[in-house]
Design a protein around this nucleic acid. Structure first.
Lengths: 134, 134
DNA sequence: CTAGACCCTGTACCAAAGTACGGAGTCAAC
DNA sequence: GTTGACTCCGTACTTTGGTACAGGGTCTAG
């Protein structure tokens, strides 16, 4: 049933490097396989699923510590907690978007000011960064 | 004219820590004052201006390496370069906003799916992260 | 039976932007 | 004439998510 796979194959199947798998093990996100076949540890489907879970969660902006919390949840009984974590992450993402948008418009302003200033004189961008009034 | 200030005052005036000033000096963003008054190095207005420049640029999302490039520009002759750097940063910020927006909508989808699933069964968020189809 | 590919463990290193600490010297005030 | 705040210089640690290497052992094919 559960395919017997070494760490290299496991890593490749999830699209990560062997060192990354080991790193997740060190971080406690993934168990180090208990069973060995000869001298090599052997992994199965559950480890692969967990590894993919980590990657998907990461793509959604969760950091490894948060993923550890997600992984500790039970599909059956922890829906509230899962939703709470997801909502917190949404708020987080929204905040970062707001920040970036404000930076974006400040930069836009500088550039368009620079473009519309015909004076051959000092660069408005550098002058603004340099100071006087703010 | 140029106020004679020690590093602590300089740092406080720019809203950073002394260690941060020293760090910028190590990074070559800020010169270590040559003049000393007794045993202590003495800074003036130009260092304060430079420090503020760094902070403003940082608030606009430039990293220290990029700020080094900005600081190397001449207000009079390097307008083109300044604009180019600002435009590159704008593109950068836009890209990050797009990324975050796509993450945001994926998260929204998960949460609203979870909210509208009345089955007492498994949590849709955790199940989606856990896999099968994607 | 040997070469090459793979695995094991442990440790060190990378970026980025600082922060903290140790041990010494010095300055100003009371 | 000493206390307390400040400075100097150098080094090490922090966070996050890995990556790289050293020095073995082992497995598989030809």
């Amino acid at each position: 049933m559960s395919s017997e796979i070494t760490i290299g194959t496991l890593a490749r199947s999830a699209g990560v490097g062997v060192e990354t798998v080991r790193y997740y093990q060190r971080r406690g996100l993934l168990a180090t396989a208990g069973t060995k076949k000869g001298a090599f540890r052997v992994y199965g489907d559950s480890e692969l699923a967990r590894l993919r879970f980590i990657r998907r969660a990461q793509a959604l902006g969760f950091k490894l510590d948060e993923i550890a919390s997600l992984l500790a949840l039970d599909e059956e009984t922890d829906r509230e907690s899962a939703r709470a974590l997801a909502r917190a992450k949404i708020a987080d993402v929204e905040e970062r978007i707001r920040q970036l948008q404000s930076v974006h418009s400040a930069l836009q302003e500088l550039v368009s000011c620079c473009e519309h200033t015909e004076a051959p004189a000092p660069c408005p961008i550098l002058r603004t960064l340099g100071g006087e009034a703010n």
